[in-house]
Design a protein around this nucleic acid. Structure first.
Length: 471
RNA sequence: GGUCCCAUCGUCUAGGGGUUAGGACACCAGGUUUUCAUCCUGGCAACAGGGGUUCGAAUCCCCUUGGGAUCACCA
């Protein structure tokens, strides 16, 4: 590892950036920063059919929000860098050049066999229960009159290719089972396998860090590096992220959605990053919460896991609550929850802050703030069945008038209210918890709320009495 | 089916020949003499199975089983 570390995140704009993509980007980013290297964003848009118009913008916005900013490559305004352009559709000349070099050396050829023919050959092979591997020998013997509309295939030589993965170890592939795979499609665009190798070489990428679904095609890449006489990069394949069933890969319904949806739900980028970093990596200690800086300082590839990890939203929620409680100042919290709340709630900032002090530790996601704080800003609908769960309505009515009498004259201060209500419970000869339940429901319409005396004090005498009397 | 990969509590994981197999999330119980939350304490819970190697295996080897990835003119 004498060469400078340069890694890239190379998504294809065929949709939105999902959790899995962010995890890959994160490990690249962490590795770059941990080794004073560069983190590059490149776009692999060689699939014209699946190209999504807003894909590029979405990718940049997602990475921007989550805090994984590239040092080089594609960004709102392209980042400076000597290896551009960083969008593959703008680099066609490079692929063409290298493909031609391969053809000149007899290592690649225009393939005359039409797709339909290949399909039938394949069907035949499957029928006879033998593997299908497309080879040069299946091509027509006479040279084509024109190469127009023909893809270029690599002429895979006899032999075998060995390569090493930094987390899984050594791999060896016999060329007998490697297709003469297509490197340039009929439309003139390169395939992933080819563009990837050419670009990683041209951009001096030192480590290719990507999802493990690429393991099986890495032999092709290694072979291409050798044939093109490029120096090979180090390969690092990350374990996949699974859905809650622990079997299938994380899918849309399990939460593998556009990461901006996580923003909308009120997750903190730092919490997501922390959570994701621990999916397939740990520092060997029992530490669970890491700031981005700590992650950078402690990250190393040697501790990347081999086996896949299940995405557990429960743990993400815990982590997010942890960050809200311990890492956010009140001012920062307010900025984050503001978008979810009616503006009117913030008009009286002192009151708002008093409420927030009571509710801060109960918020796990910002989108929950409205529901949690609501009882202090809106008159609740009190469900009669809930209110009368422990005592009948007549009893409650008599209690309420007693309560009103008891607290009307006192100062509205936590201990005073507590004293008055406890004395009243004793006087009425009722268990305090029972009386408090009724009052809590009467005041908030809920069984879950902050401490009862805090509710009284925060609401104030007038509002408290009003709510009780309206019962 | 071919090729390849993986395997410790339900989940994320520590542990790499000798450990009461540790921590965290979730869950349960108790406490903070009002609920929920927070916080504290405690509890439940794992080495997939079988063979080796070894004085000794969760750890090393083999097989089985289970799971996964991939076999595109997608990336």
């Amino acid at each position: 590892m004498n060469n400078p570390v340069r890694v890239r995140f190379a998504p294809s704009p065929t949709g939105f950036l999902h959790i899995g993509g962010i995890r890959t980007a994160l490990f690249n980013y962490l590795f770059a920063k941990a080794n004073s290297g560069q983190f590059i964003l490149r776009l692999e848009d060689t699939d014209r059919e699946r190209f999504v118009e807003e894909g590029v913008e979405q990718i940049i916005k997602s990475l921007d929000w989550i805090g994984l900013h590239p040092d080089e490559g594609v960004w709102y305004e392209q980042k400076p860098g000597e290896h551009g352009p960083y969008i593959q559709s703008q680099r066609l000349n490079h692929y063409k050049d290298y493909a031609q070099k391969l053809i000149d050396k007899g290592l690649a050829y225009y393939s005359q066999t039409i797709p339909e023919k290949i399909e039938s050959l394949k069907a035949e092979a499957i029928n006879e229960r033998r593997p299908f591997v497309y080879k040069h020998s299946m091509e027509p013997t006479e040279a084509p009159a024109s190469t127009r509309g023909m893809p270029i295939r690599l002429k895979v030589p006899d032999g075998k290719t060995m390569w090493k993965d930094e987390v899984r170890g050594e791999f060896e592939s016999n060329h007998e089972i490697i297709d003469d795979f297509i490197i340039v499609k009929a439309d003139g665009f390169p395939t992933y396998n080819f563009a990837n190798v050419v670009d990683d070489h041209l951009m001096n990428i030192s480590h290719v860090i990507r999802g493990d679904e690429f393991i099986s095609s890495t032999a092709k890449h290694a072979l291409l590096y050798d044939l093109l006489e490029f120096d090979r990069p180090a390969w690092v394949h990350l374990p996949s992220i699974l859905g809650p069933d622990g079997k299938k890969k994380l899918s849309k319904r399990d939460g593998d959605v556009n990461v901006l949806e996580y923003k909308a739900k009120g997750y903190l980028p730092e919490a997501i990053l922390n959570f994701l970093a621990l999916l397939g990596w740990n520092d060997g200690t029992t530490q669970e919460v890491f700031s981005p800086e700590e992650l950078i300082n402690k990250f190393n590839i040697g501790r990347v896991q081999k086996s896949p990890a299940v995405f557990d939203v429960n743990r993400l929620d815990w982590m997010n609550g942890e960050y809200i409680r311990n890492k956010l100042s009140d001012e920062e919290l307010i900025e984050h929850i503001k978008p979810y709340l009616p503006e009117a709630w913030l008009e009286n900032m002192n009151y708002f802050k008093t409420v927030l002090a009571l509710d801060k530790e109960r918020i796990k996601r910002f989108d929950e703030a409205k529901y949690i704080m609501e009882i202090f800003f809106e008159t609740p609908n009190v469900d009669k069945a809930l209110l009368c769960k422990k005592d009948d309505i007549d009893t409650i009515k008599s209690w309420v008038s007693e309560v009103v009498k008891a607290i009307e004259p006192i100062d509205f201060e936590h201990d005073q209210v507590e004293k008055a209500l406890r004395e009243l419970a004793e006087k009425l000869d009722v268990q305090s918890g029972r009386l408090f339940y009724t009052l809590r429901v009467g005041l908030t319409g809920r069984t879950e709320a902050p401490g009862l005396f805090d509710i009284f004090v925060t609401l104030g005498k007038a509002e408290s009495l009003k709510r009780l009397q309206s019962l």
